[in-house]
Simulated assay, not measured.
Amino acid sequence: MEEFRHEFVEGPDANRLHVATLGEGPLVLMVHGWPDAWISWRPQMRAVAAAGYRAAALDVRGYGGSDAPHEISAYTMERLTRDNEAIIRALGTDGKAVLVGHDWGAPIVYATAYMRPHVVRAVIGLSSPPAPAPAKKPSEAYAELYPDKLFYQAYFTREEGVAEAEFEADLERFIRVMHFNLSGDTTLADPVEALVRPAGSTTLLDGLPEPDPFPAWLTREEIAEYADHFRSHGLRGPLNRYRAQDIDFDEMQVYKDRKIEQPAFFVGGTREPSRHMQGFDRYADPVRRYADCRGVYLIEGAGHWLQREATDELNARIVDFLKELDS
């Protein structure tokens, strides 16, 4: 990884944010989700840098080389969008950036676009579509949606420390099982089974299949590398993003009717496990909050990890969009 430069930016709470960069030119900032790290973007960083841009990928607060505050309130959408703004101001040549977000990174990117539009040129969303504002607090919605089964977000938020203990007991198993079963290569009959466990379940991972054989995009070396990213801080910070959603519900009311006005497009995999987790197809109309939609692309057979499962197609979509944006 010597090709990547590693920088630290001071965030709005005097928190330290680790950012990897590659190339020179207009800034393209990539924001990962859960359970992930900046390293997931390496293939896209190389492609974007080769196209004449400065590719940057951060460790979101709570992850890897970035600081991990303890309190849940440190992980609200308002705080995370201010982190993005701090990085853009520090690294962008003109104070703006194209934002690319995956999983939780996508909602963070969307919120940055409509909460801090002055620093966002354009938006690319992966896997998680820009949903309308929720009608009720997520904790209330979980209880109604899955009263008997173990829904992963309810498990994360119900009692602090429980999910941390399960995942941190064997970080490599956690990464191996989650990355495999959220992918298009899972052997689960229905991909959503990785996120919604049967009635009576008390853990998330037990009962989920192991990769055998490993898919080409997932190696033992990479699993070890991901696990290392979680050793310093553990899982509390990443899980606090889920726990902060009820705070977001109140703080984000002022933005509930906001659209993403910047040029934007969306990419998802047809086997994305979260696609049907709310009882309907989230991809049926995935871009209701895009005012200037430049395309919706579903990659056949791909699951959640588009950066690695569908590297070539995703890279081509991103580079084509950037060239069109600057033509």
Rank of each mutant, 00 (worst) to 15 (best):
M178P: 13
T219G: 10
E164V: 02
V162P: 07
R236S: 02
F214T: 11
H179P: 10
D206F: 04
R176Y: 07
T219Q: 06
F230V: 04
D248Q: 11
L171I: 05
H233P: 14
S232P: 13
F156L: 10
E210G: 11
L171H: 00
L239H: 00
P213I: 00
A216T: 10
L195K: 07
A216W: 08
L239D: 03
A194L: 07
N240E: 05
A189G: 11
F180P: 00
E221I: 13
L235Q: 08
D185E: 05
A189C: 11
S232M: 15
P209Q: 14
E172W: 14
A169V: 11
D206H: 07
F167Q: 01
G161F: 09
A224K: 10
M252T: 15
F174A: 02
K256W: 11
N240T: 01
R231W: 06
Y242V: 09
P211N: 11
R243M: 08
F230E: 00
A227L: 10
G234N: 05
T203N: 09
L195I: 09
S232G: 15
H233M: 06
F180H: 03
G184E: 00
H179A: 12
F214S: 03
E164L: 00
V192R: 03
S183K: 00
I175D: 00
L188F: 05
V196Y: 01
E210K: 06
F174S: 03
H229L: 11
P215G: 04
R243G: 10
G207F: 08
I247V: 12
D248E: 09
R220F: 15
H233V: 02
A165S: 13
R236K: 11
D212E: 15
A227T: 04
G237N: 05
S232T: 15
L195M: 08
G234R: 06
A224R: 07
T203Q: 07
P238Q: 12
A169R: 10
H229F: 08
G184V: 05
T157Y: 03
